[in-house]
Design a protein around this nucleic acid. Structure first.
Lengths: 240, 240
DNA sequence: TTTTGTGAAATGATTCACAGCC
DNA sequence: GGCTGTGAATCATTTCACAAAA
């Protein structure tokens, strides 16, 4: 709770059902891989094959799944459908989760139409903005509403997840209003650190951060080409 | 390298300058906090204050900075400007990084105009799409070009970072073309696992994954309200 | 006195390797 | 024979706590 950041620290207190955070973060990937397998007609899969499809090691996959229970068959593998069910349940996807999205600029539009939204167990309860020119605009199934209606919607639909797609300068205020309305999980696309009470979860997605991290590795790849050459030439071990 | 995923595993081989991945992932946050501090007129800051501004613990901040060098003054703190310089350098932000963006739908538009792009050391070398109706469209400073021009642009600008903002079904092909053109770091917004050669870095941003992770915690908050009550009532320890 | 920098301890995550089951 | 589930071992990260420096 209150971790924030795509690669945030582990949640300090795990109340029950000790599924490690690192495992939880990989479960959606397993689900996606399983669905692709199911679409391809597979009904059963080994840890090796599923791990490859999900881009992890097979030992890691088995360890991850072992935190959820024992749903495989030795010598055979896993039932695709059964595993989808158990992972979905562990993630709390047994129900439909209404989500509110605040900020209907380009990013908001993109998120609203992402597909992976309505597709999985999420549905957009409402879209909000404060720009009068956008209020009333139709986006997908929804009409954009004024942020002042937030409390009504959150109350009526029992929303507990909010997505912030506003400019940075508006994000903290929107966040405060979401929290005041009763939202307890926030996905923040604005490049700001949000201050929230401890019971509220925040995850952050930040383009600039991601680019800078890539940059670090890229930066180092440059040296990887140069430094070994230098090192070798200095020891006279050049082979070519 | 080849890690993929916002919370991917640690890069297996660190070639030089042992900055842990977890630290690298936090450096952009420190940079942002420092700039906010600088804008507010601060010229010096303690680890405690900076840590608070960045949303981490002060011990963690100091340990992270210690991987870059020893740039503080005991009893005083850090020079804001100096620290910005050293963190920027560690991240490889000493130069301007040209970036290509493929996929100019809503998401692509949002990314192109994000601000945090041109703002930090990144510049968009070109925007690409394959939809004939979009080719030639102006977005910001740029004109949308056909993906077939990719090689030319990557060659001419020495681009090594690519951003994929296409639908999922097109992502792997776009990725292959980026890699073939010489791009070695990819930021992927499409909900697919990309297959890349080992020297290529991929980071993934996926709305649906993030929502599902939030969902897990949300799901558990529900039990936090119910289960302790059950446990207590079963032991007869109810105090109210 | 204040605050950094850092060994050492504690915690957490991943990988190994194999016993156990089909 | 093949594959899962899992303790034990390894590796990484975070936190503690304090000596050293200004």
């Amino acid at each position: 709770m209150g971790e924030q950041g795509s690669r945030g620290p582990a949640a300090p207190a795990r109340l029950r059902a000790g599924v490690p955070d690192a495992t939880v973060a990989r479960l959606p990937g397993y689900l996606r891989a399983l669905r692709a397998l199911a679409d391809a007609g597979r009904t059963t899969v080994s840890s090796e094959a599923l791990a490859t499809a999900a881009g992890v090691g097979s030992a890691q996959l088995r360890k991850d799944l072992s935190h959820l229970g024992s749903y495989g068959t030795r010598g055979v593998g896993y039932e695709v459908a059964e595993l989808v069910f158990h992972i979905s349940r562990a993630l709390g996807l047994g129900r439909r989760w209404p989500v509110v999205l605040v900020g209907v600029g380009n990013l908001g539009h993109a998120l609203a139409g992402y597909g992976g939204f309505d597709d999985r167990g999420f549905s957009i309860a409402a879209l909000f903005d404060v720009d009068e020119r956008r209020i009333g605009e139709r986006v997908g199934e929804q009409r954009v509403r004024h942020l002042d209606d937030l409390d009504d919607v959150v109350g009526a639909f029992g929303v507990c997840i909010g997505v912030i797609a506003t400019p940075a300068h508006a994000a903290q205020d929107v966040c405060d209003r979401l929290v005041a309305a009763g939202v307890t999980s926030i996905l923040n696309f604005a490049p700001t650190l949000l201050r929230v009470p401890p019971q509220v979860d925040v995850r952050k997605v930040d383009l600039s951060n991601e680019l800078q991290i890539l940059c670090f590795h890229e930066h180092r790849k440059g040296f990887a080409l140069v430094e070994p050459l230098l090192d070798e030439s200095m020891t006279g071990e050049v082979s070519a």
